[in-house]
Design a protein around this nucleic acid. Structure first.
Lengths: 201, 201
DNA sequence: CGACACATGTAACACGTTACATGATTTG
DNA sequence: CAAATCATGTAACGTGTTACATGTGTCG
């Protein structure tokens, strides 16, 4: 649901052809979104159908333009749409529907012990993933680039991606703890203090 | 991508008919996922096609069964699938592709000031949403249920949903701060001190 | 009776995924 | 030359969204 908008934003910077859009898209999203080549072109077709992009006229591409490269560019409507999307932080409503959330919410109503087990299993998995991520982060280095010239934007993107993965993982771990608490409180509403994981039901 | 699995889990607890599945699904996901009625039936058809669910024979529904209610139940394969999904925390790989993440990542490569502006705008929006959520949370009360008998499971689900929204929002806010730091560091790699908001990295 | 909740569907669409087909250009 | 990369597409599929059609039971 963001490929369309992503292409718009990339085209807002400069005209690009399909393949270039794909590589640039992936460069910016780190390893977050492996884009299938075909989808780029189908999406471009839809955008063209909707009047948001158009093919740049051949006259504007002066030297050594490969026949096969077909650069697209935004129309006026497309520029508006791209900017509007970036600015539309207000209506950013789409609630999160990750697998993790769904699993926990659905499992929350079975037997207490089973529910706690699911929660705990996920906690372990997330913890492992977090540690692995942190290792990779340290390995890649947080500082401003090595001698590698190409890393200009790519590693910035990679850093940002790693960052968001880490903070999200930490948040999910905190949530799982909250879940365990709520589940126990819910199954022992009047009781005083269970010494440990009480099987109250 | 989780409706299918959700229905499986609900049916694993007991046979249910379509409408009941919808209401129960929504009850458990708080207000997170407003399920369209039609989708329940189309999804059930697909599950039936794949041999995961079947219609419970009329013989098993003894008293006062409405003609119009058609209860579904899991097949053996369905039970396996439901359990497998709950247990499959390991392969839970799907990387997050929220609008927020995509916007920031794509905007990170434009002019520094523009990028920082996008980040900051989102921070304000998220902050407002967080405060609003916290207010609602306090209004609803964190304790174990009022005298309302029905709130048994519904409010547990609501609490869990609110929790996840809060921790996610907090995480995203932290990420936005990190983004601002990284952007400034990236645009002033060798410079000493840009007067404000130092990225400690 | 009229409104509303209950209950089951159909049709059309948008989007993302996967797999496949096809060529040109570059490079070892 | 052979292989890899660059570049553009088509076809089929799964899934989620929206809107609409249809009918029954219940309750004021």
């Amino acid at each position: 649901m963001a490929v369309k908008e992503g292409l718009l934003v990339l085209l807002a910077e400069q005209p690009r052809h399909g393949y270039e859009l794909k590589t640039e898209f992936e460069r910016r999203t780190g390893t977050l979104w492996q884009l299938n080549t075909g989808q780029v072109y189908t999406t471009l077709e839809r955008l063209q159908r909707d009047g948001l992009v158009e093919m740049a006229p051949a006259t504007e591409a002066p030297p050594s333009t490969d026949e096969r490269r077909r650069p697209y560019r935004l129309t006026a409507a497309g520029q508006e749409a791209a900017q509007a999307w970036l600015d539309a932080r207000a209506a950013d409503d789409a609630p999160p529907r990750d697998e993790l959330i769904m699993k926990i919410l659905l499992a929350a109503h079975v037997e207490l012990d089973d529910a706690l087990h699911v929660v705990d299993a996920h906690r372990h998995t997330l913890l492992a993933r977090l540690q692995q991520l942190r290792r990779r982060q340290r390995a890649n280095g947080t500082g401003t680039e090595g001698p590698d010239g190409d890393s200009d934007g790519a590693s910035l993107a990679q850093h940002l991606c790693d960052d968001v993965l880490v903070v999200r993982l930490e948040a999910d771990l905190r949530w799982l703890d909250l879940c365990a608490d709520r589940l126990q409180a819910h199954h022992a509403p009047t009781k005083s203090k269970p010494t440990k994981t009480r099987g109250t039901s």
